[in-house]
Computed example of a mutant assay.
Amino acid sequence: MKTYRIFSLFCWICAALPVAGMVGLLGFLAWKAGGSLGVPLFFGDTAPLDAIFKFAPVWDGIWPACVGTLCIVGLAGLTAVPVGILAGVYLSEFAGGWPRRVLSLCVDILAGAPSILMGLFGFALILFLRHTLAPQANMCLLLSGGCMGLLVLPYMINATASTLGALPDELRLIGPSLGLTQWQAIRNILLPSAGRGIMGGVVLSIGRAAEDTAVIMLTGVVANAGLPRGLLDRYEALPFFIYTTAAEYRDPAELGRGFGAALVLLGLTTALFLAAGLLHRAMENRWRNGA
């Protein structure tokens, strides 16, 4: 009994450590940010409504960096989520023998690739295009989003394949018993049942795409670029703003803005996580009501 109590106490302490670490991190950032939190942190001297609706330039705020970060996350999601889900379905339900082993190996290698390597890939791709097909090619938002999508693609593939593979055999028998084809059974039974695990891969992908700096440094992010005017334009992003501020700040107030931007990045990532969770709940309720 005494051993059980000690083990239970140890489990409680281990469970409390991540919560304590998160609370401590948020408190540290809020303390360091000081008085920098507020409307001027986002828009500087520009009127907020002008910056949002009239696209007025913002020179001393992080609003363009917030928009650029959201664009990167959106492009990475558009690239990685559909391809990752379809590849995971193929890996779990269709592949067998050597194709399965080769695809699994490629996914594992891609998952182990460091982010700086993905940035170098994008940089080398632009150099190749400049010397061959597109002499005017340059680093841009589209390139960063594509490279970021490739970076988070293994999360989606592994999450989809592992979740589908863990479904019970009884669930797989429902489709044939109802006269459904394999694809109909996957679309109407297996994928909705695996939705929670797949959404976990989406959440991991969102977090990685929102915080990574190495990829965007080599594929298009710059300081003071303003709002991106298109997919082929340069842009700003919160991770790069935090990096440059920490490396080149000139006074404590500027460093405080960097801490404020870090707090905003955490809040933005949390909001994206919550949005993904709400989307999954809505899809799950719709599937249950339809069933």
Score class of each variant (00 low, 15 high):
Ala161Val: 06
Ala225Tyr: 08
Ala159Val: 02
Arg172Ser: 04
Leu37Ser: 07
Gly200Thr: 07
Ala137Arg: 00
Ala194Trp: 00
Leu204Ala: 13
Ala291Pro: 04
Ile189Gln: 07
Leu29Gln: 03
Ala276Pro: 08
Leu263Cys: 08
Gly277Asp: 15
Tyr90Gln: 04
Ala185Arg: 03
Leu191Val: 01
Gly68Pro: 06
Leu129Pro: 10
Pro64Ala: 13
Met118Leu: 15
Gly201Met: 07
Glu93Arg: 15
Leu125Pro: 06
Gly220Val: 14
Pro48Arg: 06
Met22Pro: 01
Leu164Ile: 05
Gly77Pro: 05
Pro57Lys: 09
Cys106Ile: 12
Gly145Ser: 15
Ala214Cys: 04
Gly260Ser: 06
Leu75Gln: 05
Asn285Thr: 13
Leu125Lys: 00
Gly226Arg: 04
Gly84Thr: 02
Leu143Met: 14
Phe7Ser: 13
Phe28Lys: 03
Lys2Glu: 15
Gly34Thr: 15
Leu266Asp: 05
Leu263Glu: 04
Met156Ala: 08
Gly230Ala: 08
Ile116Phe: 13
Asp233Ile: 03
Phe43Met: 05
Ser177Phe: 07
Ile52Pro: 01
Arg286Leu: 15
Leu70Gln: 05
Arg101Tyr: 14
Ala80Val: 05
Cys14Trp: 13
Gly74Trp: 13
Gln182Glu: 14
Ile216His: 15
Gln182Met: 09
Cys14Gly: 07
Leu279Met: 15
Val107Gln: 03
Pro18Leu: 06
Gly260Phe: 03
Phe241Leu: 10
Leu278Val: 15
Leu218Val: 12
Pro168Gly: 09
Gly27Glu: 10
Asn138Tyr: 02
Ala30Asp: 13
Leu75Trp: 12
Pro168Met: 02
Phe10Asp: 01
Ser162Pro: 00
Gly112Phe: 03
Pro176Gly: 01
Val23Ser: 04
Leu191Arg: 00
Leu173Thr: 01
Leu150Ala: 06
Asp251Val: 11
Thr132Trp: 11
Leu133Pro: 10
Gly74Val: 09
Asp60His: 01
Leu49Pro: 05
Pro135Trp: 00
Ala137Gln: 02
Phe94Ile: 06
Ala276Phe: 09
Val203Pro: 12
Pro114Cys: 10
Gly200Phe: 15
Ala166Asn: 10
Ala16His: 02
Ala185Met: 03
Phe94Trp: 07
Trp12Ala: 10
Ala87Asp: 01
Leu105Asp: 02
Val39Gly: 02
Arg234Ser: 14
Cys11Lys: 09
Gly230Asp: 11
Ala253Cys: 06
Leu263Gly: 08
Gly27Trp: 12
Ala275His: 09
Asn289Trp: 15
Leu272Pro: 01
Arg281Ile: 11
Ala47Lys: 10
Arg257Pro: 00
